[in-house]
Write a protein that binds this DNA or RNA. Sequence first.
DNA 1: GGCAATCCATACTCGTCCGTATGGTTACCA
DNA 2: TGGTAACCATACGGACGAGTATGGATTGCC
Lengths: 192, 192
Amino acid sequence: MNASAKPERTRLSAEDWEDAALKLIADQGVGALAVEALARQLGVTKGSFYWHFRTREALLQAALERWEQYGEREVISQIEAMPDPRARLPELFRRVAHEIAPHRVYAALLKALDHPQVVPVMARVSQRRMEFLTTIYREAGLAPAEALNRARLTYAAYVGFLQLNFTLGLPRISHEDFDAYVEHMIKTLTPG
Amino acid sequence: MNASAKPERTRLSAEDWEDAALKLIADQGVGALAVEALARQLGVTKGSFYWHFRTREALLQAALERWEQYGEREVISQIEAMPDPRARLPELFRRVAHEIAPHRVYAALLKALDHPQVVPVMARVSQRRMEFLTTIYREAGLAPAEALNRARLTYAAYVGFLQLNFTLGLPRISHEDFDAYVEHMIKTLTPG
DNA sequence: GGCAATCCATACTCGTCCGTATGGTTACCA
DNA sequence: TGGTAACCATACGGACGAGTATGGATTGCC
């Protein structure tokens, strides 16, 4: 009936466990990452898990590194390919606003910043993204110091939006109101 | 040597437990709220706890309600007392930016939005604050729809700042750079 | 077909934490 | 001053999840 009843009788690899872990993290958070729960979901038992990984901590580490490596990449390169620098910011905003799925893991990890293993990963990812934002703002005509601060502000708004929206579910907003909000955000944060 | 070695031989009340719970939540998050850990910290045992509360869940509920009731209140009323509406926004921004202590519980609860008990509390608190922000923006001259969207943007920036800063510790920023960031934020988000 | 490496199941141990049961101690009050 | 209610300690039961031990099943390969 549900997705957990897959009759996949193929054997599992470490990558399968990592993907399943990321899926579970996106759905229920890092705290819900338990090996027996994962095993049930994959249709096997703990015996399988402890062949592929030495410990639960090792799985989390591998899953985080996998996410850091294969996440994003596409958006940044596509935006950088746009010829007009001043058109990049609106495009980036609209794209991020409407493709929420890839951000679910990031939002989940945001709620696990007390966990020692996720902090360095999130620090690196956030740092890279903010540097990317800073570059775009500079190319849009802002002075270095201003570009940096605007990037901080923009990224903070992004992070806060993730928390308030599809974690808290607030503000309860309609689809067209949301589009208006995005346009307001573009108008307010884009220089010129 | 440390604060947990208080020789307070006075007996405890339910409010003492709630305060200690809030302190622990601010320090280590909702997940770290365990009754035996709290009891150790208060210099008693579980026997004391289960006299005051029926369950761990009840303590969390009481602590959350206590926080919702006694938190904030001061800032909002003080800002509302200012005569010039256009001066309220910068003052609010600077005040929030420099009084980080009261926001530690809010930041901790932000990371526990998967917990059923904290969601309604955070929804109410966030909703009230955003309505307050919307009012201020209206009084500062923005049209209703614009004021609402600007409030959303501002509050998202606030929430994101909490996460990125004293949870993730990013961006690693100096004191004067931080002041410049706050001023940039005021200039960007304040109408006129 | 047989052998070895890979993959998985079953059945445990162990530690942690919630909640209960019960008896002891301290404060208040007539 | 004696008694009752408020407060706390100790000891236990039970659930849950991580990790281990060990044997069974499956795959690739000669």
